[in-house]
Amino acid sequence: MTSTAGTVPVVDPGDPGAPGEPDALVDVAASGRRRGRTAYLLMAPAVLWLALFFVIPFYSLIAASLYDPSGSDEDGWRMAYAFGNYVDAWQDYWQPFVRSIAYGGIATVICLVLGYVLAYAIAFKTGRWKTLVLVLVIAPFFTSFLVRTLSWQLILADDGWVVDVLRFLQLLDDDGRLLATDVAVVTGLAYNFLPFMVLPLFASLDKIDHRLIEASSDLYSNPVVGFFKVTWPLSLPGVVSGTLLTFIPAAGDYINAQLLGNTNTRVVGSVIEAQFTDANQPYVAGALSMTLMVVIVGMVLVYVRRAGTEELL
């Protein structure tokens, strides 16, 4: 993101009132960036907004997770540093929690396979239709998330053609079903978050110098070996950001689990939502929310380290 480095100072867009002084008066950093207080004025509104409505809420959430569980909305909540809330929440809700991570993980793998094929085809095989196909990839996802998830209800319904075909092929028992199963939930997740995978993958595949791939085939590598030795390693940054961008929202989502699943496919997201609103147990919701965040951040760090692309963050 620092490709603007140049030798000549850039204009000062934030200080339009200044007279046209010669550049010598401006202290220019080696990167070609200006120094000065104007930057803080430009950053202030965004930083303030995020501080107030993203950072501070985190503290509120931590506080809520440590409330004395004997409180209530009427009597008020007392801070008790009740770390036991985390243990209790885990014991009661570890199943939805693990389910969320598993659904998110499986959906991410499916997205990676489908998304890689699609992104590869767009980057290398569509030629001058590239932009058009890219628009077509994003287009379906402009329809409301909930509406397109509901349409999966129809596609996977017991009397739908998908179930008919699978029953005919004996891949599904005669009374087997898809809707209200784990399969349906994962299908919905893998569908809804596909663009989050395709776009970063495409961005890194599109940057690959075709001459490198040609060179590998000139040196008698067969296409499969060439792919794994040249294309795949070069596309790793896209793989890493794509899997993260897919996994994080997929693990936190509960729309798919609720609309396409059943009571046995409950995920941690809906538990948190219910505990905060209907059940009035903010400490349970807070503890689960924090645990989810910590687990996801931990998994992301380990994963990014192992993939060796730390500079991504």
Binding site: F53, P57, L61, I248, D253, M293, I296, V297
Partner: peptide, 14 residues
Amino acid sequence: AAPEIVLGSSLLAL
């Protein structure tokens, strides 16, 4: 990088 449910519930807590 934060799941929506975490953003939403922390904002509600605030």
